[in-house]
Design a protein around this nucleic acid. Structure first.
Length: 561
RNA sequence: UGGGGUGUGGCCAAGCGGUAAGGCAGCGGACUCUGGUUCCGCUAUACGGGGGUUCGAAUCCCUCCACCCCAGCCA
């Protein structure tokens, strides 16, 4: 009945195991409660995987509940995006889709109970005055002059608040707890505020809306949530969460448990900053492939499997931490290494002419899609002729010691094809730029029994006559520093990586690539994994987004000098 | 100098009184027609510091230090 606690969320599983063992709960019901005021990001994915994962492992259920108590900043656009993202991640809430707004009437009735019990009162203080009365971290607050209003007056005023008799912001309903509490959340927190704002679900039915603190725990109780998992910053709210439950005839007793939110290096995770990037035009929208949003990662080409794997590997704990982006990259590489077909695409073409290869000859070379997985059949023919394109980076006129690709006089293997030796270089007379490589090939170097390509490296290529122009977008980390969300008051946008997106203009791919369809993922050998962009690709004109590069030990060597 | 939290190798993270898992990163080597993958191996004074209890402590107690969160009618 209970799962071992070795899986992620060990700390939470330990608590659940205890509650199950003691008979405190008989089933596990969790919830993922996003506020529809922005797009979901990888940090939310951690929470989604945790909540739905717990429900799955314990044979319980997980609800998707929109925490829509503040209509002014919420929008249906976000609702749709959130549902799409959760589903895409692979989770199903079944019939358990809820909205805090569904409970507005019940919450109202319960608030009335508190008023009748003298535990809540209508306060006429302005927002500023309330703040002043609240005191500070080290000084106790002072009671509002309205704190002692009679039950009758409170009942009357509260009803008229709902009836729309008072202007926005003129009054609030407050819980009467303890103005001297060292926990500021208990200094008579606001439960309702007056706002004539049209709600996406309740329309104009209400002009008073509940605050998070007042709505959340009660919503959990109504839904029978057993374990209400949230992030660390809500820890201070737990006493309030419990206070409300203690005062009311709620149908169940949920338990709040906190865990540390996810931070990822080289990116930012706050809604505010992500919103700023979108609205400031620093990225092309919430689904820009560089964004850490679920939509962005999906557009980039990440798979739900890789994201889920990532969420499992990072674990769940209570210590603030920042996960290395390299771990995320490792997850997607591992997944795609298993499932992506290998094909060839030259990113920055350098013409290569094979002098001893007949000008009118064309060979169709058989190349497997999964070289490392023989049982998995599949291959295509790649045209080979006298004129090819190879990667500029694969040639160096004066190669350093550890460089074993093409250089004057050097021989390398052309992937799936012949060994070629560089016999000369042609340069632009004016600029001195290398414009063409002259080579000779070894006719006996192909096919079974041919000498292994031990001499040099193996490089990818494409036929200059048959290859097709390919649109490639190289995405890299959005920020150039590990922790862009610095707290020294500086602008995080100063750390944006100017090379987070490089659009390649002259890339050439093997002919078959024109047939790539939106949503496909491939590996361009020796380069990385790519995704056929579902938005910008057209039939016959695919656009490839680089999801992640391959690990590159040569780059490390080269960097060291 | 109010309250609530957290501190285990570069980054995450198990561990819950019996003598420090695992992953990522890093470093070697094997293999390889991807400088990819795979495989093997390695490194490191890792339990914030100092006391104490105990036969025995990362795990219990005391104390100190560091960092995070809280003064929205945001969530």
């Amino acid at each position: 009945m209970t799962e071992p606690t070795s899986r992620p969320g060990g700390l939470i599983r330990t608590i659940i195991d205890g509650d199950l063992a003691s008979g405190k709960v008989r089933e596990v019901v969790t919830r993922f409660p996003p506020e529809p005021n922005g797009y979901l990001h990888i940090g939310h994915a951690k929470s989604i995987c945790l909540n739905f994962g717990l429900a799955r492992d314990y044979g319980g259920r997980c609800h998707l509940r929109f925490d829509d108590t503040n209509p002014g900043r919420e929008d249906v656009e976000y609702i749709d995006a959130i549902e799409r993202d959760v589903r895409w991640l692979g989770f199903d809430w079944g019939p358990h889709l809820y909205h805090a707004a569904d409970y507005f009437e019940q919450l109202w009735q319960w608030a009335l109970l508190l008023v009748e019990a003298g535990k809540a009162y209508v306060c006429d203080l302005s927002a500023d005055q309330i703040r002043e009365h609240r005191g500070t971290l080290t000084e106790p607050g002072r009671p509002s002059p309205y704190r002692t209003r009679s039950v009758e007056e409170n009942r009357d005023l509260f009803s008229r608040m709902r009836a729309g008799e008072f202007p926005d912001g003129s009054r609030v309903l407050r819980a009467k707890i303890d103005m001297a509490s060292p926990n500021l959340n208990l200094r008579d927190p606001v439960m309702y505020r007056i706002r004539r704002e049209r709600h996406h679900r309740t329309g104009d039915a209400w002009c008073v809306y509940p605050t998070y603190d007042w709505a959340h725990g009660q919503s959990d109780a109504i839904e029978g949530i057993t374990h209400s998992i949230c992030t660390l910053e809500f820890e201070d709210h737990r006493p309030l969460y419990e206070w409300f439950l203690d005062q009311l005839p709620v149908p169940s007793r949920p338990r709040q448990i906190e865990f540390a939110r996810l931070n990822l290096s080289f990116t930012v995770m706050s809604k505010r900053m992500l919103m700023e990037l979108v609205q400031g035009g620093h990225v092309q929208g919430w689904d820009d492939p560089r964004m850490p949003t679920i939509a962005g990662m999906r557009r980039r080409g990440y798979t739900p499997e890789a994201i889920r794997d990532f969420c499992e590997r990072i674990g769940v704990a209570r210590a603030d931490s920042t996960v290395d982006m390299a771990l995320l990259e490792n997850c997607i590489r591992q997944d795609l290494n298993e499932r992506a077909q290998r094909v060839m695409c030259v990113h920055r073409p350098l013409r290569l002419v094979i002098e001893n290869y007949a000008d009118d000859r064309v060979e169709e070379i058989e190349a497997p899609f999964f070289p490392d997985d023989p049982p998995r059949m599949g291959s295509r023919k790649v045209p080979f002729c006298r004129e090819l394109y190879v990667e500029r980076d694969d040639f160096m006129e004066e190669p350093p010691k550890k460089f074993f690709r093409l250089a004057p006089g050097r021989e390398v293997r052309l992937r799936w094809s012949y060994l070629v030796k560089c016999t000369g270089v042609r340069k632009d007379e004016r600029t001195g730029e290398i414009v063409e490589l002259r080579c000779t090939y070894d006719p006996s170097s192909i096919g079974p029994g041919a000498p292994a390509g031990k001499k040099g490296g193996t490089i990818h290529w494409v036929s200059a006559r048959h290859s097709v122009p390919i649109q490639v977008r190289l995405y890299d980390r959005l920020f150039g520093v590990p922790n862009p969300a610095r707290k020294d008051g500086g602008d995080f946008k100063e750390h944006l990586n100017p090379e987070s997106l490089l659009v390649l203009t002259g890339a050439r791919g093997e002919p078959g690539l024109v047939g790539a369809t939106a949503g496909e993922r491939v590996q361009f050998e020796r380069k990385g994994f790519y995704f056929v962009d579902p938005v910008d690709s057209k039939p016959g004109a695919p656009v490839f987004n680089r999801i992640v590069s391959l690990r590159d030990s040569w780059a490390k060597i080269a960097a060291e000098g």
